[in-house]
């Protein structure tokens, strides 16, 4: 008996099953998700990254930041993600598919050599700190294994008495006579990092509890108690 056709058809069937199950079906379910309208603020979540942050996404991709940093907060009870305060969304809430709607590409990452960056824009809002950390991580986190990204910075000779460039890093005592100026790539990358914040309240990732004393009661009088849940 010639079994060639049997092997061919079997292979075709298996591939088709895996394709329909894991490509087509998920695409039908979540492929056309839309941003969510937060009613009391009238804002959409997630927002499309724009301008410098969009360029920074390319820098993040080109330099393979995602090989060491994930962008996914696992649910409470699964690992220490929430306890490490990597979550956001005014409560201990995990990442959901809608968070990545505008990620191009989606760089969830597979390893945490460094910390998760889903909400780095909420944890660290200081641009200079982020630039300094990119230039010399060990100067801010002793013992860090992160490589310095000096190639994203220009080292310029300064003449005594000359005013430092507007965007130069704080002077480094180890490098007298020089100033360190971030390149466009470094600035874009930091803009991207600052834009990373999944603080939109979503139906599929509701706030589990309201943190006490986050806001004085008076300011919420206009909002109904259910304002944070999506009223469709």
């Amino acid at each position: 008996m010639n079994q060639g056709p049997l092997v061919f058809l079997g292979t075709f069937f298996a591939l088709a099953t895996a394709w329909f199950g894991f490509i087509l079906q998920p695409e039908l379910q979540i492929g056309s998700q839309q941003p969510f309208l937060i009613e009391d603020s009238g804002q959409l979540y997630p927002t499309k990254p724009a301008g410098l942050a969009k360029q920074g996404e390319d820098v993040y991709r080109a330099n393979g930041c995602f090989y060491c940093h994930t962008m996914q907060v696992r649910p409470q009870g699964l690992g220490g993600d929430v306890a490490r305060n990597w979550g956001a969304r005014s409560g201990p809430v995990q990442s959901v598919s809608r968070d990545y709607l505008y990620a191009e590409p989606a760089m969830l990452g597979s390893q945490r050599v460094g910390p998760d960056l889903t909400n780095i824009g909420l944890r660290q809002t200081n641009e200079v700190w982020l630039l300094q950390h990119l230039y010399n991580p060990q100067s801010l986190a002793a013992g860090s294994t992160m490589p310095p990204y000096r190639y994203l910075f220009a080292k310029r000779k300064t003449t005594p008495g000359q005013a430092p460039s507007k965007d130069a890093l704080p002077p480094d005592n180890n490098l007298p006579g020089y100033e360190i100026v971030p390149t466009d790539d470094a600035k874009a990358l930091v803009a991207y990092l600052l834009s990373l914040r999944s603080d939109g309240i979503l139906y599929e990732a509701p706030t589990l509890y309201v943190k006490p004393a986050t806001a004085p009661a008076a300011t919420t009088t206009n909002a109904s108690p259910a304002a944070n849940s999506p009223a469709k």
């Binding site: 080109a62 330099n63 393979g64 930041c65 995602f66 090989y67 060491c68 991580p137 060990q138 860090s144 294994t145 992160m146 490589p147 310095p148 990204y149 000096r150 190639y151």
Partner: peptide, 16 residues
Amino acid sequence: PTLFADCAAFSYGRSH
């Protein structure tokens, strides 16, 4: 970590 700090191509995110 500082070995390839000035060399984009050999940084971990590219050489890996």
